[in-house]
């Protein structure tokens, strides 16, 4: 079986500073794979490179084809959708407009659009309630739902999620993770970048730990959860 996403020796630099240094990872179709690590480890940079927002060295293959030379929009059209850490919503536009624009890559399919919209409203009833409200007036949790909903409107095959739990109350984090796990059942694969290590590993099949731009630990999510080196990394400990 070929991987849906296969990154080999990826390097990303901002000017002279190399934020991602030789990262390799792979994700099989139908999997949730998580990349965890502290702030400044290069997680967001890695996602930006996978998405084509930043130029990268190394090979990134998606669905068996090299992504080099494809711009962000072409990747979106192929079903690669990113929910960025900063959400990047159209704040001055309504919730409904944000969602409709999420399907821009499939704009010719008007009928599909309606059905998809209903699906997303079904997934996030809160968004349906607020469909006429401008996105800028939403609360943090609602914004995260809208960002996720907008990405789902693009019919992703692989969803890249950057810190979906960031700054959200525990109840909403739980809700978001419930939805993420539910998505896998519908055939969407997910690459989940998180600093909320436990929540991420509990939802994922496989995990990578990114530290200062390099992959340190990696392995099946369950094994990582029990690994003492992980809690040392997060809470500081004797091994540090």
């Amino acid at each position: 079986m070929t991987a849906l996403l296969q990154a080999d020796d990826v390097h990303v630099a901002y000017g002279r500073i190399e934020a991602v240094r030789g990262v390799s990872l792979s994700l099989q179709a139908g999997q949730i794979v998580t990349v965890i690590g502290p702030n400044g480890a290069g997680k967001t940079t890695l996602l930006a490179a996978l998405m084509g927002l930043l130029p990268a060295r190394g090979r990134i293959a998606y669905d068996g084809a090299d992504l080099a030379g494809l711009d962000v929009e072409a990747r979106v059209e192929r079903g690669l959708c990113l929910v960025p850490e900063r959400r990047e919503l159209f704040t001055e536009m309504s919730v409904a407009d944000n969602l409709v624009l999420g399907a821009y890559a499939h704009r010719r399919d008007r009928a599909g659009l309606r059905a998809r919209l209903d699906e997303v409203y079904g997934l996030f009833p809160r968004l349906a309630e607020r469909r006429g409200q401008s996105a800028g007036t939403l609360s943090g949790g609602e914004r995260q739902m809208l960002a996720l909903g907008r990405a789902l409107m693009g019919r992703p095959r692989l969803l890249l999620l950057d810190e979906p739990s960031l700054g959200l109350a525990p109840l909403i984090v739980r809700e978001i993770f419930r939805i993420i796990t539910g998505l896998r059942a519908t055939g969407v694969s997910i690459l989940l970048v998180e600093q909320n290590a436990r929540a991420a590993l509990e939802s994922a099949d496989y995990g990578y730990v990114l530290e200062t731009g390099q992959i340190g630990l990696h392995g099946p999510a369950g094994a990582l959860l029990g690994d003492p080196r992980l809690s040392a990394l997060y809470l500081g400990g004797e091994t540090g």
Binding site: C81, E88, E92, M93, A103, Y104, G154
Partner: peptide, 23 residues
């Protein structure tokens, strides 16, 4: 119109627009 909204979206958030496939 969707085209009009896409233009506005580009103005409001360039990165966001690219992420939904608007060039």
């Amino acid at each position: 119109t969707l085209s009009g909204k896409a233009l506005r979206a580009t103005a409001v958030n360039r990165v966001g627009a690219r992420l939904v496939g608007i060039r």
